[in-house]
Simulated assay, not measured.
Amino acid sequence: MKFENVVLGVLALKPFHGYELMKWFDTEGQFIRSNTHHSQIYRELARMVKDGLVEFEVDARDGRPDAKIYRITPVGQQVLLEWVRSPFVPTSRFQDADFNTRFAFAIALDLPAALRIVETELEYRRAQVAASRVRSRGIVGVDPIDGFDVESYARYGEHMHVFGADSVDRWMDWLESMRARLVADLGGEETAAPDTAEEHSA
């Protein structure tokens, strides 16, 4: 997930001062991207302005330094939509930041794209569970270094596995509920991905 996609998605909500954007990444944004330094945000904004994805106007302030108000451009909107609609590739870790971010923006920009994202994630998790639940988790042929407690490793590892399996099951239940809601909101019809021509004319 590119940093610019997150910035474009946030600016699709409303124009932001640079400081407001920093505060967003310190609060809501921390769940999408960890440890985003303020200098990274300003470097990214400068690059995006240069690339025509974002523009700004100067907010003159009496007795204080002027501030820039950043807003997404039509080119930036197109790039954001193309990312939202592009094929989603799940990772081995569920509730990955790319899913959460893309889904959050897709539900506001393109419900059929949001449905495709959910269905792709659900199909992947079902296959992952089917393949991994039957695997042998025993430790074979161990030769640990001194101080490595194999018994504790196995015992607590089993607790982690049980918790993880339960969490994935609950995640799939949530995906099922989101899929049902999206299908209902789309009038009960599942829609195919837009072709390239449609995508670039949006």
Rank of each mutant, 00 (worst) to 15 (best):
F3M: 06
G9F: 07
V10E: 04
L13G: 14
F16E: 08
L21Y: 08
D26Q: 15
D26W: 11
T27C: 06
Q30N: 10
I32L: 15
Q40E: 15
E44Y: 09
E44D: 10
L45M: 06
R47D: 13
K50C: 06
V54E: 00
V54W: 04
E55Q: 12
F56S: 09
V58Y: 00
D59S: 14
R64H: 11
P65W: 10
D66Y: 08
K68G: 01
I69R: 15
G76I: 04
Q77M: 13
P87C: 07
F88M: 00
P90A: 03
F94I: 09
Q95E: 14
Q95F: 10
D98G: 09
T101Y: 08
D110Y: 05
D110A: 05
L115V: 01
E121N: 08
R125G: 02
S132W: 07
R133P: 03
V134C: 07
R135S: 13
S136Y: 11
S136W: 10
R137Y: 10
R137Q: 07
G138Y: 03
G138I: 01
V140F: 14
G147Y: 02
E151Q: 14
Y153E: 11
G164Y: 13
G164T: 14
D166N: 12
S167P: 05
V168N: 08
D169H: 09
M172S: 02
M172V: 07
D173N: 13
L175W: 02
S177Q: 15
R179F: 04
R181L: 13
V183N: 00
L186I: 03
A193H: 01
E198C: 00
H200E: 09
S201G: 08
